[in-house]
Amino acid sequence: MKPLLDLRHLQLIQAIIETGRITDAAKVLGVTPSALSHRLREAERRLDVPLFTRMHKKLRKTPAADYLAVVAERVLSDLSRAEEDVRRMNRGIQHVVRLSVEAYSNYRWLPSFIKFLKTRTEGIDIQIMAGARGDPLTGVLNRHIDIAVVSGNIAQAGLGSLALFDDPLLYIMAPTHRLADRAFVEGTDIEGEPFITYTKVPEPDREFARLFRPTDSYPQWAATVELPEAIVELVASDLGTSVLSSWALQAALKEQRIVGAQVTQEGITVPWCAVLRSEDMVEDDPIMLVAELLAEWCDMPDSGFHSM
């Protein structure tokens, strides 16, 4: 059966949700407002359901539009990927594997891995999808990305994982900080300290559960900054302290812009893994091959994911 809607309708829904106005959405799509209004009425007529309601000169999405927007994101992403794949094929690339790293946008390790990848396989290119770092697992399930490098142990339907490396958490501070000479810090050491974090959602086996709660000692929240690289800059300027993964801090530590201390005397080590769709975890699949080579490369002493 022929679908009632086509790509133009999906793009329309997405644009109106993003802008909230017919005129602004028309500018985004490069059409006239009257043409876009006609296209919207046509979509609602075909579906026999309203997609938007007008409220204070803005269009408010209905549940139907909200659902179709999710579908549009996936369909348009797949189409964009297919177009990019075709263009790359003309340069000898048969497969493009899209990858993102949870939370962090530090990709100093990437050139080394790509060089390693090229020595082991041909026709596979890596595309970094930095915009997916906020929720990479959903990105994998929605096919926005193929591999998510994430921390912790992942057990979720439809996903599989390969272990990559274990990495310690570090309590970081400015070189002039009063705790800068400590080899490790306990919860009581940092009680009341200005603390910058990229999320206030407690995670098991991290600083909330193993540093703050055991001694009932908590820092003073200074800010929530979603970009860890920005946190490093704030810490280096002595505007607060933080706890981040060691592997992503090596450049700043070597440059002595910040100093790091082990989190608790025993230390907190976090496992990192490559997560991909279960259906892609088959032999000879390009996505699986890249994940396996990434795991092999991470085990090498000179890989960018080896910290201390």
Score class of each variant (00 low, 15 high):
250 Q>P: 12
252 A>K: 11
78 D>C: 11
101 V>T: 11
68 L>W: 00
145 I>W: 02
34 S>T: 14
91 R>T: 14
176 T>H: 13
195 F>K: 08
116 F>H: 14
142 N>Y: 13
220 Q>P: 06
175 P>V: 00
276 L>W: 04
123 G>Y: 00
238 D>H: 10
164 L>I: 08
241 T>G: 00
11 Q>N: 12
245 S>D: 03
160 G>M: 03
304 G>R: 03
223 A>G: 11
85 D>T: 10
205 D>Y: 14
50 P>T: 02
122 E>F: 07
183 A>H: 12
228 P>D: 03
240 G>Q: 01
32 T>R: 07
55 M>N: 15
210 R>C: 11
136 P>M: 05
218 Y>G: 13
27 K>M: 04
81 R>F: 13
217 S>A: 08
56 H>P: 07
222 A>F: 05
141 L>W: 02
10 L>N: 08
296 E>I: 12
288 M>E: 15
151 S>C: 10
265 Q>T: 04
6 D>R: 15
184 F>T: 04
184 F>I: 00
227 L>P: 11
64 A>Y: 03
185 V>Y: 01
43 A>E: 01
223 A>D: 09
156 Q>N: 13
56 H>Y: 12
200 K>C: 07
64 A>H: 08
228 P>H: 00
24 D>C: 12
46 R>P: 01
223 A>V: 08
102 E>G: 10
113 F>L: 02
36 L>G: 07
5 L>Q: 11
297 W>S: 06
9 H>V: 03
65 A>G: 05
172 I>N: 06
218 Y>I: 04
87 R>S: 12
74 R>I: 08
